[in-house]
Design a protein around this nucleic acid. Structure first.
Lengths: 93, 93
DNA sequence: GGATCACATCATGGTCGGCTGATATCAGCA
DNA sequence: TGCTGATATCAGCCGACCATGATGTGATCC
């Protein structure tokens, strides 16, 4: 999941989808990237379960799955929590 | 920040540091990676402000900065929140 | 049914980034 | 001061991944 957000274009797509479902043409227009490029990234996000496609006629709308984002967010928060808890621990050599 | 966690070895290093400060030799031993490799990743994390070095004699201990992790976690949580809020929005073509 | 549009897929090329080996630096110790 | 060990830095290689162009597929409209 985090690896997917590492790519700038993919991160941009996720941000756009956070404002609501959108079809590929929207994302192509908003990002300025080429259509196959966007489509490839959407495939990666789809295979990872980050987005779900909703075919509507000849348009395909994509919707973000908040649970996945929440999972990643909780993971990072847990890491921060553990780091705080072990604030003054220092392993010996 | 998220881009840094995209690398498996760097993610492992961050996880290890979440359990407490450790010197480079610890990280080298625990990850099984070579010393220059670990050192390079530590530099990247240091330049991004994710970790802070604490020189102790000839050892250099590294400590995680939880605020940075929390910032990333909050960013993802906010994204998930926005996605939930705009649950049934669908942009028109 | 043919044309067109939205989208997906594939193959290719170019580039960025991680890994390695060698070397430099610095602290502690005999 | 000379040596050893811990760490940092650098140059180069190589693999993975993103972007592009061409093409395929399915749906809509005439």
């Amino acid at each position: 999941m985090i690896r997917l957000l590492a790519d700038p274009l993919r991160a941009r797509i996720v941000e756009l989808l956070a404002e609501g479902a959108a079809c590929t043409c929207h994302l192509v227009e908003d990002t300025g990237a080429t259509q196959p490029n966007v489509s490839n990234h959407l495939r990666a996000l789809r295979q990872a379960g980050v987005v779900v496609p909703e075919p509507r006629g000849r348009y395909t709308f994509y919707r973000l799955r908040p649970e996945v984002l929440d999972g990643a967010a909780r993971h990072l928060a847990a890491l921060a929590e553990r780091a705080r808890a072990s604030g003054d621990v220092r392993r010996e050599c």
